[in-house]
């Protein structure tokens, strides 16, 4: 399912809403999560899962092809932990 398929599905379920509002709803949700993570905040959606940011220290890496040492700067990576309910939902047939 892509973002536009998700929007179409929600529009079907909510025929009283304008398509452009449905689009705005979906966009707002992912923008809010993105901006929260960019502030270093955690996003906790009980039952679904939690998004957080982890810091990776600067390190000396190696170009795997040439073996040359390269400095890798400190960076932040987004992380998602699946919620209990969703994890269980994936495993019920």
């Amino acid at each position: 399912m892509t973002k536009s398929e998700l929007i179409m599905r929600l529009a079907e379920l909510n025929p009283h809403l304008y398509q452009r509002d449905v689009e705005k709803i979906v966009t707002t949700i992912f923008d809010e999560i993105t901006e929260a993570l960019a502030r270093g905040d955690r996003v906790e959606l009980r039952g679904f899962g939690a998004f957080s940011v982890k810091r990776r220290d600067a390190r000396t890496g190696r170009n795997p092809r040439t073996g040359q040492a390269v400095d890798v700067e400190e960076k932040f990576i987004p992380f998602f932990k699946t919620g209990k309910q969703l994890r269980e939902q994936l495993n019920t047939d």
């Binding site: 809010e32 502030r39 270093g40 905040d41 955690r42 906790e44 959606l45």
Partner: peptide
């Protein structure tokens, strides 16, 4: 880093 939690 921020110490807030964003929820539903």
């Amino acid at each position: 880093m921020g110490d807030h939690t964003v929820t539903r």
